[in-house]
Design a protein around this nucleic acid. Structure first.
Lengths: 268, 268
DNA sequence: ACTTGACTCTCCCCTTGGGGCAGCATTTAT
DNA sequence: ATAAATGCTGCCCCAAGGGGAGAGTCAAGT
């Protein structure tokens, strides 16, 4: 029994194009090729081989690998090594895709939270903040350096991040150049590394104000919030916090005019 | 400040080749191109865009998708839809790879079992078989039809298969053409479908003989095993079993001379 | 001013696993 | 005998670049 390429294609569910390619690459050679017309004819043994090739393709082997395998081996027990290797490859891909999936999840989650409660209020507010687990990287420098801190945190704790980026300011007064800052992410879990400390960040009562717009103009909001605090004669605690509700994103830098930062000054 | 392509490549960790491609595809257009020399020069804004592109690439977006996104949007909140879609894609890939991984695992496992205990004995043996969960497809036909049954089972229960393929023979005597056969796989778990029944297959005491070689010659082994049974005056039960310790594989058909089949005839 | 070495340019071919089409030859069924 | 279906080769195309040839350009040292 012999089959023309069309029939063979239907039998094996391999496209005619693929069959011609496999012939050209000497992976699946028709049992007979008409010397004059070039017509390809396939037989039963070709069907078996085609099945093997299809399965190896499903298992993500490349045509080059498949060619090697079918030329050298004829039984599963002989290709255990290759199967184990391939499985490792696949596990790596799975791990990689899982990371991507988690990263995307985080972005979606944070953005959805923003959509849920569009912060329309610009008034000073008193509120209670809960204790949370954070990963923090403490540094001395300027505000503009915090990006590096967040980059470091994201690289090390990317998959455990659980909320919005924050900065903690440990100076009692405003410092331009040598500020004592800790960049933080809320995390689900994690261990200290050399540079990063993971710990509970105590909550408490705080005075909060939403600042909308570029960070460079945040001074005005600080003025407003301290005005309120002085009026009420509250005693402040350090560190104070800035929560980046909407800042430069994971993907886009975004438009600074739309940045939203929450200032939180904790009181006794 | 402007950067040559080499420096920009170092800054962004994108290869020069990629940068030229992105320019050609109008994804990342240098801030300045020398009209006479064709030299590309990049600026700070290009760095931001490059970062965005890199991240989208990591998230598995194609260049075409990236082009669309960066042309139309400038904030994460605007591409939530695309992110959700991409996440679905990635979940599909993960699911697919997991299936492959499980299939390969199964093959490796079964082959390793064969290596562990090379069945060297060809003598009739009495042994105890444990109860196991099986998925079975019952049919009437010839032995040569069982392949289809196994194909069906593998398709539906592939990821739950937990041992070697078996056939159960429900006829008391030998039948050539219209035999009542059930093809089975041991499975971890599973639910009945219209054609396939999942259930406990009771174990018990059986007389076993390993048959090595093509199935066509299994008659001799049956003769031997029934000789033994008659000699001992055992009462046999139905169904009897054939366990395909080594038969046509998942990948290769293999050489029938090396096939190993265990005949199990249960006794009271 | 010149040379040298490092950069950069365009162009072309290669990769994987085929898809699609043109133009022609052959086979099969009516 | 003729038409419809099938098959052939050859060419161009996709994504996302990699590699290299051959030529032009830039900056620094002499």
């Amino acid at each position: 029994m012999k089959y023309g390429i069309g029939e063979f294609s239907r039998i094996t569910s391999l496209s005619i194009k693929s069959l011609r390619l496999y012939h050209e690459k000497e992976i699946l050679i028709p049992s007979e090729v008409d010397q004059f017309t070039g017509y390809r004819y396939y037989n039963e043994r070709n069907i078996e081989l085609a099945r093997t090739i299809k399965i190896l393709k499903e298992y993500d082997f490349s045509l080059a690998e498949i060619k090697e395998i079918i030329n050298e081996f004829s039984d599963e027990s002989e290709i255990l090594e290759q199967l184990i290797e391939k499985k490792k490859d696949i596990e790596k891909k799975i791990a990689n895709y899982k990371n991507i999936s988690l990263s995307i999840d985080l972005i979606i989650k944070l953005e959805k939270e923003n959509k849920m409660k569009p912060e329309n209020e610009f008034e000073v507010e008193e509120k209670e903040i809960e204790t949370m687990l954070v990963a923090g990287y403490r540094m001395k420098g300027k505000y503009s350096d915090v990006g590096k801190g967040f980059g470091l945190l994201a690289k090390n704790f990317g998959r455990e991040i659980n909320g919005k980026a924050m900065s903690l300011y440990y100076d009692a007064e405003y410092k331009e150049n040598d500020a004592d800052i800790e960049t933080c992410f809320p995390v689900r879990k994690g261990k200290d590394t050399e540079e990063i400390s993971v710990r509970e960040l105590k909550g408490g009562k705080c005075i909060s104000l939403i600042h909308k717009g570029p960070y460079e103009q945040i001074g005005e909001s600080y003025k407003k919030i301290f005005g309120y605090i002085n009026e009420k004669s509250y005693k402040t605690l350090i560190p104070s916090r800035e929560v980046y509700i909407k800042g430069p994103g994971m993907i886009f830098k975004g438009n600074p005019k739309n940045y939203i930062t929450e200032i939180q000054i904790f009181i006794q």
